[in-house]
Design a protein around this nucleic acid. Structure first.
Lengths: 286, 286
DNA sequence: TGTTGTTTGGAATTTTTTATTCCAACTGTT
DNA sequence: AACAGTTGGAATAAAAAATTCCAAACAACA
């Protein structure tokens, strides 16, 4: 436990002088780090020796050591935001609590998504993406945005990629798929009827189908050749599918990075792509 | 830049004594934190005064301040855990290393984005989003996807929102903005000419302008009434702007959640919206 | 090769900060 | 009231940090 929390917890059972000093430190740890023991004493209206004794009662050799501990605790606090409060965001949560919960939920979604996909399946997906003649991305709603993001990245690698936000167009495109082609279907529920139909069509036409869905049993996985999973918040109404999207992005980003790795000339492609966009900006600005 | 890196960089152009002291600090920052100036002098075979002077040459008031800076730097470093693991992904990294680096980069981008935006500015943005008659979202390329994601969410809250991925359409729409309207402009570089022009137009027409850009000085912030910042990886070619996008999403997600909080009937809106989509699915499936 | 100005870095000193000691005041107990 | 045990500040000792001062090393130049 962080020293700041430890102090907070003990605050009530402390003697008046210690409580006052402790309270100041808990409330203004940043300031405390810049104060000498005498200055801190003045700030709290106590004596310098009391400050030193306070430090020693907490188990440190002296004030300096306490400072070091506080500094470390402040760092730590950021790192694993306060117990990484996951849990639903409530109406009366303060700003900081919301921040922590949001970050915690996102992190958890990403970590769990990593955890549920084993390296073997990722590898198979990678191989399929790498060898496909043409890659078609399917997804509606929020999943469509992830699909588009992924398509931009794949294009940067020089791959032939297709995605349209209109599911009818997606369907029309899917009808042109062949055995050497790949359908990458994204749906958190795995039950979006448009995406499902497109996947079925692609499967009939012998294209390889990769499905990225949530863990629950769903029709889309049954059509797929390769199954990848995303883990998001259950309470999708409240979180408004934020974590589901983050999980999907985590997975597609991971696939992209791994693809870059196994494609020797990837860096050139990406670089050229960025350069082209930059050139566009420069030209227009002049 | 972290003080440790700053020292490393200057190491060659330093005088012998300073170099020796600097080197020790860079190599053993942990140990240095527990050493007094005299002890550090002994450790490096130099004089105590040289240690103090070294600190001052770096711009600190004295050794104590340098210590504090080093402690902070170490904290920062540790935030992207131990070599974490942030750092560029290399060609010969293993699967696990890549996972860690990717997750680390994402986490860091989100944390830093939280850190650079103070609650006051967020509050102002929130108020503007809350009171605006109409909200227009501007952004091209990857930022357009974030804008669209945000627009979907705002729509769920019953707000009047406009976004089109075509920048010409965005411009046309912006020309209809008035004093009660809001332009929310996203651009990581802050220099995308299309987004900039749209923001200028909106500003001329007296609409409130919120700019979400990277930290570097850029033209877009100069047009904006409210400035929010995102922190992403510097090496955008390699990471392919993954973290920049994550940072933008972190910010928009946060704004969304906070909006939900201050809008009493938000939950109903969101619920109805989700229900409508579900109904659509169910009907089609039957 | 001397002269001069500058930089470097340590010894000595002063100042500040930290840690310890000691004692008075208070608290609760018998 | 007497006692033991806390509590907390004043005074002091010890340690650490910062400044001053000066000598050696170095560089530029006549």
């Amino acid at each position: 436990m962080s020293i700041l929390k430890k102090i907070s917890a003990k605050l009530e059972v402390m003697a008046p002088a210690d409580r006052q000093i402790g309270q100041f430190i808990v409330e203004n740890p940043d300031q405390m780090l810049r104060l000498s023991s005498a200055a801190l004493a003045a700030e709290t209206g106590r004596s310098q020796s009391s400050v030193v004794k306070f430090s020693q009662k907490l188990g440190y050799a002296g004030y300096q050591e306490l400072k070091l501990a506080v500094s470390e605790a402040k760092a730590q606090e950021w790192q694993a935001p306060a117990g990484m409060i996951h849990g639903t965001i409530e109406v009366d949560d303060g700003y900081l609590t919301i921040l922590q919960k949001l970050l915690g939920s996102k992190l958890q979604a990403m970590q769990q998504t990593i955890a549920v996909n084993n390296e073997v399946d990722i590898g198979r997906a990678l191989k399929a993406l790498h060898e496909a003649r043409r890659i078609h991305l399917a997804g509606v709603g929020a999943s469509s945005l992830v699909a588009r993001d992924f398509s931009y990245k794949l294009m940067k690698l020089g791959r032939i990629v297709l995605h349209d936000s209109d599911s009818h167009v997606q369907m029309a495109n899917a009808s042109t798929l062949g055995p050497d082609d790949l359908l990458f279907a994204l749906s958190y529920s795995g039950a979006s009827i448009e995406t499902l139909r497109i996947a079925e069509l692609a499967s009939q036409r012998d294209a390889t189908v990769i499905a990225v869905t949530g863990l629950q049993d769903n029709p889309l996985t049954r059509v797929a050749d390769i199954r990848l999973y995303t883990v998001g918040d259950e309470d999708r109404v409240r979180s408004s599918a934020i974590t589901a999207r983050d999980a999907q992005l985590m997975l597609t980003d991971l696939l992209f990075i791994l693809l870059v790795q196994r494609q020797p000339d990837a860096h050139d492609y990406v670089h050229n792509s960025e350069a082209a966009v930059s050139a566009l900006k420069a030209k227009r600005l002049s």
